[in-house]
Design a protein around this nucleic acid. Sequence first.
DNA 1: AGCGGTACTCGGTATTACCGAGTACTTGGA
DNA 2: TCCAAGTACTCGGTAATACCGAGTACCGCT
Lengths: 108, 108
Amino acid sequence: MDDLTEMLKGTLEGCVLEIIGSEETYGYAITRRLNELGFADVVEGTVYTILLRLEKKGLVQVTKRPSGLGPPRKFYALNDAGRQELATFWAKWEYITSRLGKLKEGGR
Amino acid sequence: MDDLTEMLKGTLEGCVLEIIGSEETYGYAITRRLNELGFADVVEGTVYTILLRLEKKGLVQVTKRPSGLGPPRKFYALNDAGRQELATFWAKWEYITSRLGKLKEGGR
DNA sequence: AGCGGTACTCGGTATTACCGAGTACTTGGA
DNA sequence: TCCAAGTACTCGGTAATACCGAGTACCGCT
């Protein structure tokens, strides 16, 4: 699938939230996970900027832990605000997909 | 539904393509149509920038016609390139929704 | 010692939707 | 007659976001 970057704007952050929400994890692993999910072109730099943003917005709790193979990892977990944000993300997503579906079916 | 603007990035242009594809129409009417479809906050300025962009990319054919109530209208219709672009837009959209769905269902 | 894989940071760029103000044309009421 | 309101388009600037690229650093293996 060719360039999806414009269409991912606004949704990628939600994807990261969802991944973090399902288990405490760290940047590098999140990138791999997104890649294997089909978001093949998402690159580490992008994920880290999202992570930094989430931290700045106060949606995640960060814990640094030694890695064993490489530098220490920053593990991310959702806090209450993060879970709230994730819920509204899915609500928005549902809303948009329903509208797009309507449009596509020629909803007039 | 509160602020959807970030999530609309990349999809709004596709919506406009779809609307133009279903019938030859003009900016003001497209805005009204988007609003009634549920994209309530989309504003004229936004639609016109998209329209200008589509024209610049050579995806539409433009015809100016007098209006009867107000200044002349610029009617837009898809050309072959535009129909092609619309098809790939929907393909990308399907792709992303399927990935998001998978992610949401805890696809692991 | 050096290479490859793991792991994070940071400055800059492009694209996109939004905002706001402006222009202009028409009809209808004060 | 003039002004308000609805129709219709233009344009310069802003904010948010994903991407890019280069850099730093740590580890185990050969």
